Amino acid sequence: MSIDESKEFVPVRIAVMTVSDTRTEADDRSGNVLVERIEAAGHVVAAREIVPDERAEIAGQLRSWCHDPGIDAVISTGGTGLTGRDVTVEAHRDVYEKEIDAFGTVFTMVSMQKIGTSAVQSRATGGVAHGTYLFALPGSPGACKDAWDEILKAQFDYRHAPCNFVEIMPRLDEHMRRK
């Protein structure tokens, strides 16, 4: 991994969604971790919401943001576990046009180094819909730090080589344009 200093940094507009029935912005530690890291990297927090653990509401907010031209990516935190109320992954998959399969695999590899075999309980996922990147992260601040620091920070940096998410962003919705 390397940064090509000859390229100019391109800020990405990222929405942050916390999935929780109990969190408020005052005690949303995971959402705050993401906001701090996104802004520190030079990107823009384009929107921020706390959404209850309801599949239809999560998917509805994702769809709304996917149709907002001011949002390039969405990162959600929470609801990716195995309990009955954990429906974030299903809501994301309701919206995806394409899943980024390797994201979950790479996240598991990063998590294994930090929490060992407990990493198998995460269902972190990523995908694309309507030209917007969508990522679902676990609800712990540590998992949000790991996902941003070890994966997303580099992939959302246009200067990152050999490739990154930003350079292909203009082509994500090419199938929807007239030929």
Rank of each mutant, 00 (worst) to 15 (best):
M1V: 03
E5F: 03
E8V: 05
F9A: 00
V10Y: 00
V10I: 10
P11G: 06
P11R: 06
I14H: 00
A15S: 11
T18A: 05
T18Q: 03
V19P: 01
V19N: 01
D21T: 14
D27P: 10
V35G: 02
R37C: 02
R37N: 06
E39C: 06
A46P: 08
A47L: 05
R48G: 14
R48P: 13
E49T: 05
V51C: 12
D53H: 09
Q61M: 14
S64Y: 09
P69I: 09
G70W: 08
G70H: 11
D72N: 13
S76W: 10
T77E: 00
T80R: 01
T80H: 02
L82G: 06
R85Y: 07
T88M: 04
T88E: 04
E90G: 06
H92R: 08
H92C: 12
R93E: 15
V95E: 09
I100G: 00
D101R: 09
A102G: 15
A102N: 14
V106M: 00
F107L: 07
S111P: 07
M112V: 13
K114E: 03
I115V: 15
G116C: 04
G116H: 06
T117Q: 04
V120G: 00
S122F: 05
S122A: 09
A124D: 07
A124T: 13
T125L: 09
V128Y: 06
T132L: 15
F135A: 06
A136T: 15
A136I: 15
P138E: 08
S140Q: 09
S140K: 10
A143D: 07
A143I: 12
C144K: 02
D146I: 05
D149H: 13
E150Y: 15
I151E: 04
K153F: 03
F156W: 10
Y158K: 08
A161H: 03
C163N: 12
F165E: 02
V166C: 03
E167T: 08
R171W: 12
L172G: 09
L172E: 13
E174S: 10
M176N: 00
R178V: 04
